[in-house]
Write a protein that binds this DNA or RNA. Structure first.
Length: 934
RNA sequence: GGGCGGUUAGCUCAGUUGGGAGAGCAUCUCGUUUACACCGAGAGGGUCGGGGGUUCGAGCCCCUCACCGCCCA
């Protein structure tokens, strides 16, 4: 005897291990099997499973299990990414908690060793957590972005893009995070509304002829001003264009320039231009040939050392090294003291913050490596335009296009240690000098020569070739960590050339962009694996990662593999709390999926997520909902328990097409229709539709009706009917387990094992194929039966007939077919409607409650029980409803234009309905008449 | 300021070529009939945000307004 409920805690681990041991997660080795592959969006190696991961992976697993059962050779490729900043943060925090020395004191090699140690010990915990969810990834192929193979792919891609001119070094403004002291992507910058000020400063004209007033939200940048701009059409300031201004404090002269960036409506219409500290001003500076004057160091303090750009001289000696926010106060105070402060306005400003560090981001001028994303984007845009890749829902393509068409150069270097070190080496350049009429060659370390190569050996070869051009064969030594070390080595050995390696690492997303093919082994490994599983079938991810990841995979995949990395991209929603708030630690409204799994089981959590995964909407998560789907699992469990108690088993030679009993034909037909609906749902990424179809079939069709209808057959005397019903019921239960498996893998697998001798686990069993079992006749007859039973139950309830009372039913005006159906299903009807007897008559017995089903009037004689007034009121209400419907339809059908324009089928349907309502109205009218005076 | 999405039953949401408004939860009534009270039977509840238009016909298509949310500047 089975337990009364499923116990997830006991079963889940056991079942999961059994699947893994059986090798069920690995693709089947069959060349005829269609390949189906998904790469997991690699979670950060520092990550912990949150509800968004749970949704994302539930959907992937659902699809993967479905395709696996369909017989595809399925690869779900798992792994993690190295999460440059996040991981470095974790380990640095650990170091400081342990009271250890900082990363910089520790040195690069020791620190990286320490991070690897952390990774081995506690990295990738999220992958263990995914197992709790039931994720059927092929763990034997797990990858990490810093793996040897993936690193090799990164090197190859970097070097090739460099050779093609698509990666280059440039000096531009970047988003600089002064806390981590690295460049970050503009996608990692969060703009937040902040209460700030608008300071109005007067700038005197150099010729003493007056002043103009500029306003700024960042007064400290005054020291870096290189011009004041006015709009070229602004008549107020025409006479100022070309004049010089004496910049207060910095004590330099800067010009007034004409540039359209100046907005005549904004403030005074004069705007200060600080090209080295503002993205817009940088562009203005380029247009007007302004110098770039930097005033901040890497920690966002006012310069204390000369950076070669001339900013230091502008900074008063006592301010050098001052923090940027202190500098702001100091500057404002000084301007006020000098009499240049005209006004302070409160102003709401958009302030950029680093999403990891939380500090204000500083636009800062640095040398960085850039990918020419604009070039790579062309093909990535085309691939979506021409449908090689399709987004679901399609509306996300707009977002993709919008970003792709306005894409900026992608800064890929990061001033971190944890990551793929940039494969670029530098050596001194040779400068040819003409001196005393002779050619002299000199080593120049300040403008080094760059050698990009996959290895130091290759870089060395390139270096030799470079120096050979000058007719020299110096000894090349290296690789040094920094330019300074190399220069020292060089001066110690003047005949040698020392190379040093770029200190920076690549943006983590640079390696993530290669994920769909680097994980498959590219550029090495077995080509058949790459060919079989690339391009991948579908990518499932959340919208907030379209720019970061999807777009970049498209670019790199198309460039290096010549094919888009996935045919379909399914974008799912964000999971919010039950009030619709975004979950966050600071709000304390985070729902931990692991706690939910502990409490309700993984199946319930998965089903909740899948059932709510409607396209284009956020999901609200609440415990009540999970509980409801846990109950659904219990319902299924008890249906199986019922089958066990009634000895339902499917004989080996059972042929569902051969069943004869209407009840059995019907449930098979319903099952077949459900499989179709689930297929359509999953094929179209409508997970909620698929889940709803499976849910409804299991609970509202199989349990509510089939099992109840089967009871009299299973407990009756007709041995043939009993055997057929047992076989059919067991068979349909099996189909239900299969249909539900992608959504609820654990409970279905457990039931599969407990309810029969199986030659395979459910995870690798075949997906239901029930074509040909649809049966319109059985559907019609059972539809009638269900309506009949429901009608009688409603009458009983409305007439307050005691639940236990057995009363007779008289059918009046029944057709031969109805009479035959009544007789055929008499036992069923009596049992389910709690009837004493069923009779057919020409006349309605007195004191009956009545209703109409088709051509027949159903009468329940309720002598002594019936409340005539209540029954009359009930029928009158029915009649008025019918009148409403009839009026509506008559009006519609009376409209010539409708009859002329609407499709024939629609018109015919309306006529049928009208006839039906009229018939009901007649019958109900007669019923009412019979009650008059009683 | 630009773009995208949303507004349907008390709550959360489905509603795919425009043709009788649905589900789950909640509420109310009844019920322990040997699968299941994590259950069963039944009921109530919506001018589909407002306005206008197209159409024989609009929750669905178009315009407009209001409110909410997200992304980008």
């Amino acid at each position: 005897m089975m337990d009364k409920t499923f116990n997830p805690q006991d079963a889940e681990t056991r079942i999961y291990e059994a699947w893994e041991q059986a090798g069920a997660f690995q693709p089947i080795d069959d060349d005829n099997a269609e390949a189906f592959s998904i790469v997991i969006p690699p979670p950060n190696v520092t990550g912990r499973l949150h509800i968004g991961h749970a949704l994302n992976n539930t959907l992937q697993d659902t699809l993967v299990r479905y395709k696996r059962m369909l017989g595809c050779s399925v690869l779900w490729q798992p792994g993690t990414d190295h999460a440059g900043i996040a991981t470095q943060m974790v380990v640095e925090r650990q170091l400081s908690q342990e009271g250890n020395i900082s990363r910089r004191d520790m040195g690069r090699d020791a620190f990286i060793e320490r991070v690897w140690k952390w990774k081995e010990e506690s990295g990738g915990a999220i992958l263990q957590q995914l197992r709790r969810l039931g994720a059927s990834c092929d763990w034997s192929r797990e990858r990490f972005t810093l793996d040897e193979g993936l690193s090799k792919a990164v090197l190859k891609v970097f070097v090739e893009l460099h050779e093609q001119g698509l990666i280059y070094r440039d000096k531009r403004l970047v988003n600089w995070d002064p806390h981590f002291q690295t460049a970050i992507s503009d996608l990692e910058v969060e703009n937040k509304e902040t209460q700030g000020h608008f300071w109005h400063f007067a700038y005197p004209l150099a010729d003493g002829s007056g002043e103009l007033v500029v306003a700024t939200t960042r007064p400290e940048t005054v020291l870096g001003d290189c011009a004041v701009a006015v709009h070229p059409d602004d008549e107020r300031y025409q006479h100022l264009i070309g004049k010089m201004i004496k910049l207060p404090i910095a004590d330099v002269e800067i010009p007034v320039v004409a540039d359209e960036h100046a907005d005549p409506e904004q403030g005074t219409g004069c705007v200060k231009i600080t090209p080295a500290h503002d993205f817009n001003d940088f562009e203005v500076g380029k247009r007007n040939n302004l110098p770039l004057i930097n005033i901040l160091d890497r920690e966002a303090r006012l310069l204390s050392e000369d950076d070669g750009m001339g900013g230091l001289a502008r900074i008063p000696a006592e301010w050098r090294g001052m923090d940027r926010f202190e500098a702001r106060k100091a500057l404002v105070a000084k301007m006020e003291e000098l009499g240049f402060l005209r006004e302070v306005e409160d102003k709401t400003i958009q302030q950029p913050y680093g999403d990891r560090s939380g500090v204000v981001i500083e636009p800062w001028l640095t040398d960085q490596w850039y990918v020419n994303a604009g070039e790579l984007a062309k093909e990535a845009i085309a691939a979506v335009e021409d449908g090689r890749t399709t987004f679901h829902p399609k509306t996300w393509e707009k977002t993709y296009f919008e970003w792709m068409r306005n894409i900026q150069p992608w800064c890929v270097s990061r001033q971190l240690w944890w990551g793929h070190r940039i494969p670029a080496w530098y050596g001194p350049s040779y400068q040819v000098e003409e001196r005393d009429g002779e050619r002299h060659l000199a080593l120049d370390h300040s403008s080094p020569q760059t050698f990009v190569a996959e290895s130091f050996e290759d870089a060395e070869t390139k270096a030799r070739a470079y120096y050979r051009e000058f007719g020299l064969e110096p000894e090349v030594v290296g690789e040094f960590e920094t330019a300074r070390e190399a220069e020292e080595a060089n001066s110690a050995a003047p005949r040698a050339v020392a190379l040093w390696r770029d200190e920076d690492v690549l943006d983590t997303w640079f390696s993530s962009a290669l994920w769909p093919f680097s994980t498959l082994g590219w550029p090495d490994d077995t080509p058949e694996v790459v060919e079989k599983f690339y391009p991948t079938s579908v990518l499932i991810t959340a919208f907030d990662i379209i720019f970061f990841w999807v777009a970049r995979m498209m670019m790199q995949g198309l460039h290096f593999m010549k094919e888009a990395p996935f045919k379909d991209v399914y974008i799912h929603a964000l999971v919010r709390d039950e009030k619709g708030q975004k979950m966050s630690k600071s709000k304390g409204n985070v729902i931990d999926p692991l706690e939910l799994i502990d409490e309700y089981g993984a199946d319930a959590v998965r089903f909740t997520l899948a059932a709510q995964a409607g396209q284009g909407r956020d999901i609200r998560m609440s415990k009540e909902r999970v509980e409801g789907y846990r109950n659904f699992g219990t319902k299924l469990w008890n249906a199986a328990r019922f089958c066990e108690m009634n000895e339902c088993v499917t004989p080996p030679d059972f042929d569902p097409k051969s069943v004869t009993n209407t009840v059995n034909k019907w449930i098979l037909s319903e099952a077949a229709a459900t499989v179709k609906a689930i297929n359509a749902g999953l094929d179209g990424f409508r997970f909620n539709d698929a889940a709803a179809a499976a849910y409804r079939f299991t609970w509202n069709v199989f349990c509510d009706w089939h099992l109840e209808l089967a009871k009299p057959l299973l407990q009756g005397e007709d041995e043939a009917a009993k055997a057929e019903t047992r076989a059919t019921t067991a068979y349909v239960l099996d189909q239900a387990l299969k249909m539900l498996h992608p959504f609820m893998p654990f409970v279905t697998e457990e039931l599969w094992q407990q309810t029969g001798q199986r030659d395979t686990q459910l995870i690798t069993a075949s997906w239901p194929q029930l074509d040909g079992l649809e049966n319109a006749d059985a559907t019609a007859e059972m539809g009638w039966l269900i309506e009949l039973i429901t009608d009688i139950r409603r009458l009983r309830s409305e007439m307050n007939v005691p639940a236990g009372a057995q009363i007779p039913l008289i059918a009046v005006g029944a057709s031969a077919e109805t009479a035959a159906r009544l007789e055929r299903h008499q036992a069923l009807i009596q049992r389910m409607a709690r009837l004493a007897d069923i009779g057919v008559s020409d006349t309605v017995p007195p004191a009956s409650a009545q209703t109409v089903l088709g051509e027949a009037t159903l009468a329940l004689p309720l002598e002594g029980v019936i409340d005539f007034a209540a029954e009359r009121a009930r029928i009158e209400k029915e009649l008025s409803k019918l009148d409403g419907e009839i009026m509506r339809l008559e009006k519609k059908l009376g409209n010539e234009k409708f009859v002329a324009n609407a499709p024939e089928a629609v018109v015919a349907e309306q006529r049928e309905k009208l006839d039906d309502y009229k018939n009901q109205k007649t019958k109900m009218g007669e019923a009412l008449e019979r009650l008059q005076g009683m």
